[in-house]
Write a protein that binds this DNA or RNA. Sequence first.
DNA 1: AAAGACTATGCAAAGGTTTGCATTTTCCTA
DNA 2: TAGGAAAATGCAAACCTTTGCATAGTCTTT
Lengths: 351, 351
Amino acid sequence: MKKGRVTITDIARELRIAPSTVSRALKDHPALKKETKDAVRALAKKLDYQPNLLALNLLQKKSNTIGVIVPEITSHFFSAIITGIQDVIGSSEYNIMICLSNESYEEEAVIIKKLLKIQVDGVLVSPTSATKNFDHFRTLQKNDIPVVVFDRDCPGLEADKVLVDDYAGAFQAVEYLIKSGCTRIAHLGGPLNLSTTKHRLQGYLDALEEAGIPIRKEYIEHVPGFSHDDGLKPAEKLLKLEDLPDAIFAMNDNIAISAMHIARKMALKIPEDISIVGFDDEPHSSYFRPSLSTVWQPVYSLGMLSARIILHRLNDKGPQKNFRQEVFKPELVLRASSRECASRKNDKVKL
Amino acid sequence: MKKGRVTITDIARELRIAPSTVSRALKDHPALKKETKDAVRALAKKLDYQPNLLALNLLQKKSNTIGVIVPEITSHFFSAIITGIQDVIGSSEYNIMICLSNESYEEEAVIIKKLLKIQVDGVLVSPTSATKNFDHFRTLQKNDIPVVVFDRDCPGLEADKVLVDDYAGAFQAVEYLIKSGCTRIAHLGGPLNLSTTKHRLQGYLDALEEAGIPIRKEYIEHVPGFSHDDGLKPAEKLLKLEDLPDAIFAMNDNIAISAMHIARKMALKIPEDISIVGFDDEPHSSYFRPSLSTVWQPVYSLGMLSARIILHRLNDKGPQKNFRQEVFKPELVLRASSRECASRKNDKVKL
DNA sequence: AAAGACTATGCAAAGGTTTGCATTTTCCTA
DNA sequence: TAGGAAAATGCAAACCTTTGCATAGTCTTT
C-alpha cells in the first residue's frame, strides 16, 4: 500500500499489463479486447482512480481554464453576468478564473500576463473604462488564445463580441421622457471612452435631436465613477442650474438613485417636478420610492452566450476568423420615477 | 527557429550546456559561476523565456490554485468578501477559482469533487444554507488540503474560521430598539440551520429576554431566501397581525427593505409607527427613504483575513492543527428607519 | 607528483499520461 | 504446420522542470 493517489501505473502493475494499455482501456480504445477493458475498469473503480489532470495539462499544453476579466464584481451587473458564465462553463470540462481589474488599465495588463503565464485556453473580457489600447488582448490572440469581449466593446479589435444595444436603450428612454412631456432633459453620463456610456450619451443626444430639442451643454454632466457616491455632486450641479431640468437620464441606476436623493433633499417632487430614469435595472431599483424607471439588460443571458461562444471556439480549434458579434436588445422598464406618457396611458406601469 | 514557447532546453542547447545548469542559473544556485549565470540570464531575457507552470505543477503536485466556494455572488456581501480575498491572493503566487454553490448542498458537493480533481492547494468556503453535513470538507482535509471557513460556521468541523459575531450584532440592534421605546419587536429570520441567521435570532431572543419582554411566537417569521422578494409575504404576515409590531428586526437588508415596502403600502409611518432595522449595510441601504438602520459587517476585511490565513497554512506545510478562529465585531449603524433613543439622543445619526 | 579538496557542471530520474510505432500473440487458411 | 493477416498489447518518447548524485576539472598542499 503506497501513499498518494492511485495512478495508471499502479493499476498496470497490479494487472501485470502496460500503463499504455490501462490508458487505452479507460478511453475505450477499439483495439483492446473486452476482458482487458473490463478488468482495468473494475480495478480503477475499486481503487477509486482519478486521472491526474496536472499531467494531462502538461501533455496537452493547456490548462483547461478560461480567464474572465471584469472591472469589478460588487455591482449586480457584473456578478449576474459571471453567474451566467459560470452556469454554462460549470458543466463543461473547463474551469473559470475570475480576475478583477478594478477599472485600472495597468491591473488589466498585469492580469493578461498572469493568464498567459498559467496558459489559459481562452479569455472572456470586459475591459476597464481606462482601456484605450487593446494590444494586450491581441497578444492573447497571437498566442492562439481566443478572446471574447462582452458588454464593453473594444473598437478595432477583431474578436467575438457579445454586446448590448446601449444606444437603443438610451434612445428609447429619452424618447419616452420627451413623449411624457419633458423638455429640459439632462444626462448624467459616464466615461467618454467607454463604449457603453458613450453609446448611451449618443442615444440621448439623438433622441433629443430627433424631437427637435436643442442640446444644452450645461445639461450634460459626467460622473467620475459608477457608484452612488460618484453621482451626488454632478447631480447637485444639474439641480442647481437656473433653468432646472425636468428630467434626468442617468447612465446607471446607482447614479439615478444619487440624483433622486439630491432631488428629494431639494424638495423636488418625483416625477411631478422631475423625472428620473436609470440604466441596468438593479434588483433593488424597484424598491425605491418612487420606484425607479430604468433600462433592463439581459445580463444573465449575456453571460451565458459569451460562455457558449468561447466554448465553441475552443472546440473548433480552427484559425480565428468569422468573428461573431451578438447584440442584445435592452428594454425600457417604466416605474414611478417617470411621468406617464399620454400615448401610453393605458400601459401598465410595472410595480 | 522552432514554434511554441521557449523552454529551458532551448536555452541549454544554444549555450551548449545542460538544462539543469540553466535551471540552476535562473534560480541563482550558489554552485554556478557568475559567467554561466550571466550568459543564461542574458539569453533567457533575449528569448523572453517564460517558465512553464504546467510542468511545475506536475512536478510539485500542486496547482497553485485556491478554491473559493460561495453560495452566490450577486449580493454585495459575498462579492465584497471575494474582492477582499482577491486583493490578498492576487499578489501571491496563487490563483483563485471562484465556485458558486447556489445555496445547494448537492452543487457544493460536486464542486468539492471538482476541486479535488484539479488538485487545488487550499479551499475557502462559506457553506450553503442547506449544508448540514461537513464530511465533504473533511475529505479535503484528509487530502491535505487546508480549509478555511468564512462567515457561515460549520459547527463541529475543525478548521480555521473567520466569522462575524452575528449574535452581538443582533443583540445590539434589538437592544437599541428596546431602548428607543419599542416593545412589540418582531423578527424576520432566515434558515435555522445556518449559523449566521441562527445567531441573529438568538441575539434577538436574548435581548428581549434581558429586557424582560416576553417572546411572542407570532412575532417571528422565517423567510425562504435572502432576496427582496422572499421577504414580502412574511413581512405582510407580521404587519397584518392584530397586535401590530412596533419594530421589525430583519435578518438582512434585503428583507428589511421588503418590510419597509409593505409597511409603506399599509400607510405605516417609519419609524413613527414602526422601526425597521436590517443587517449587512449594503451600499444602497443608506439611499432608501427613510435610510435604513442596519448592522454593518467588515466584509472586505473578512475576505482579506480569510485569504491571509490560508496563505499562511499553505506556507507552513505542517500538520493541520491549532486552528484559528477569528471573530469580527459588527457595528450598529443608526439611520432614519429607527426611532431615536432617549439615551442616545446626542449621537449623530449617520446620513 | 600525487593525493585531496573544492568548484562547476552534467546525468538521469521523477512527476502521470498519451500515442505512434513496434512487437507479440492469436487465429485462420492454404 | 508454416505463413500471414489480424488482433492485442507493449515500448518509449514527449510534455518541461527540478534535484540528488556523479563526474570532470581545477587548484592546493604535502
